[in-house]
Write a protein that binds this DNA or RNA. Structure first.
Lengths: 224, 224
DNA sequence: TTTTGTTTGTAACATTTGATACAAAAATAC
DNA sequence: GTATTTTTGTATCAAATGTTACAAACAAAA
C-alpha cells in the first residue's frame, strides 16, 4: 500500500498534497515491494528502467570494485528516491548495488509510467527537472574547482568567488583542516601556501579573515 | 518565423516531424529574435528563464574572469540549444555571455511555455531528460577520473575499466602523448609511471598492448 | 585560574610530478 | 632501401606537495 503522507516529503513529490498524490498514483501502474533486512534490491550494472522510492525503512548502496571487493557508498532512508540520475540518459544502469538495512517498503514505478506522472503534473515535472539539473550544476562546479591544479590556484578561486566584485575581505567559516579537505590537500600544505601568498603580498591573513590585496595578480594565477 | 525543418534536427526536438513540431509550436508562446553579428544575446549572470535555440547562424560563448578579462568557451551553431542545464535547478543563471558571430535567428521559449511543450509531447520530454541526464552522467564520470590523484591510479583505473571482468590484455588505441593529455599529465611522467609499474610486475607492456599481471595489487592502488 | 583539547604556524625530509633534453625504435614517406 | 617524421624510453634537475612532528596560540571546560 502506498503511503502518500510519506511520499509527499520526497524531493520529487514535494509540494503535492497527500490526497492529490493518491489520486495521481491511482492513474498509473506501480508496485510496492517489501524487502527483508539484508535482501538485495538492485544489483550494480542492472538496467535501470524504473524509479524506486523508499517508502519505509533504510537501505545501503555499495559498489563493487574491479577485484570484486565491496565498498559502501551511502545510506539512504525513506522517503528518498534511488538513482534519479540514471533513469534517463545514455547510461541506464544502476551504478550501485542496493540492499535493505532494515525491513523496507519500496515503491517501484516503471519508467513509462513515471513519464506519465511527469506529464500529468507540472509540479512533479518541475521537481524532477530541478533535482537532476541541480545535480549537473553541482557536478559542474565541483569539476571546475578540481580543474585548478596548484594549491595557490584553488585558494585564489575560493577567495575570489567568496569576495565577488565588491568585497576585499573574506571571512572563512571553516577551519584550515576543513578547507584543506575541500581542496583535496593536506592541512600543512594549505597553511604553507597561505603563508607564502601572504609573504608575497597577495593576501593579508588575520585569523579567519583574509584580505585580498592584489586582485590582479590573484587572477593571473587562474590563467593557466 | 520558425523553421521546423531545422529545429527538428536539434537534440531536444529529435524524432519529431517538422509538421508535428509546427503544430506543437502553434500551441505555445515563443519569440524568434534576430541578432546582428557581434550583438549580445545573453549576459553571464543574467537569469535564465527561457530556452534559447539557434535557428540560423552561429554564436560564441565567453566567460568573464574575476578581473574582467574575457575567455572564449565554445562556438555553437544552428540548431543547437543554449544552456539547457541552467533552465532548471538551483542556479538559474547563464554561466556565459553569448554573442552572435554571424547574423543569428534565435528561438526563445519562456520556461513555463517550454514546460507545456514537455507535457504535451513525451518525445520532447524524453529528449530533454536524456540531454541533461547524460550531461550529469558525463560529468560524474569525469569527476571520478579526476578523483584519482597519482598517475599510477589513473593508469590502473583506465586499464581496469578497459579490461572489464574478463580480459587480461588491453589494446591501447592512442599514443602515449594522447593518453598523457587525457590524464592531464606530461608524457615523460606517464612513460616513467608505466615503466615503473612494469618493473614491479603489475603490468607487462608490449608495444600498444598492456597485460594486467596483478589485478589485486592494481585494485589496491585505487583504494585511497 | 588551571586544565584540556583544538587549531594554527612552521620546519625537515620524502615523494611525486613537471620540464627539458636526447637517443633509440618504429612508422611513414620518398 | 633510404630518409624523414613520429613515437617511445630514459635521464637529470627543479618545483610542488605530502608526511611527520612539534610548539605556540586559542578556546572551552573544570
Amino acid at each position: 500500500m502506498i503511503q502518500t503522507e510519506i511520499l509527499c516529503q520526497s524531493p520529487i513529490f514535494r509540494g503535492i498534497s497527500p490526497d492529490d498524490l493518491r489520486e495521481l498514483f491511482s492513474r498509473i501502474l506501480y508496485q510496492v515491494k517489501t524487502y527483508q533486512k539484508n535482501e538485495l534490491i538492485t544489483i550494480g550494472g542492472e538496467i535501470c528502467d524504473r524509479l524506486l522510492i523508499i517508502q519505509q525503512g533504510s537501505v545501503k548502496a555499495e559498489m563493487t570494485d574491479y577485484s570484486g571487493k565491496v565498498i559502501k557508498i551511502e545510506d539512504l532512508a525513506a522517503p528518498w528516491p534511488l538513482a534519479t540520475a540514471f533513469l534517463f540518459g545514455k547510461e541506464n544502469r544502476f551504478p550501485v548495488t542496493v540492499s535493505a538495512t532494515s525491513e523496507v517498503e519500496m515503491v517501484s514505478i516503471p519508467k513509462p509510467e513515471f513519464v506519465k506522472l511527469l506529464q500529468m503534473n507540472s509540479l512533479i515535472l518541475n521537481n524532477y527537472l530541478n533535482t537532476i539539473s541541480s545535480r549537473a550544476q553541482f557536478l559542474s562546479q565541483k569539476l571546475k574547482f578540481l580543474s585548478f591544479k596548484t594549491i595557490r590556484q584553488k585558494i585564489a578561486h575560493f577567495l575570489l568567488e567568496k569576495a565577488g566584485d565588491r568585497l576585499q575581505t573574506v571571512e572563512i567559516m571553516q577551519t584550515q583542516g576543513q578547507l584543506a579537505e575541500m581542496f583535496g590537500v593536506t592541512r600543512p600544505s594549505l597553511a604553507r601556501a597561505l603563508s607564502e601568498m601572504s609573504q608575497e603580498g597577495l593576501i593579508k591573513i588575520d585569523r579567519r579573515s583574509i584580505k585580498i590585496q592584489d586582485k590582479n595578480r590573484m587572477n593571473q594565477l587562474l590563467k593557466n
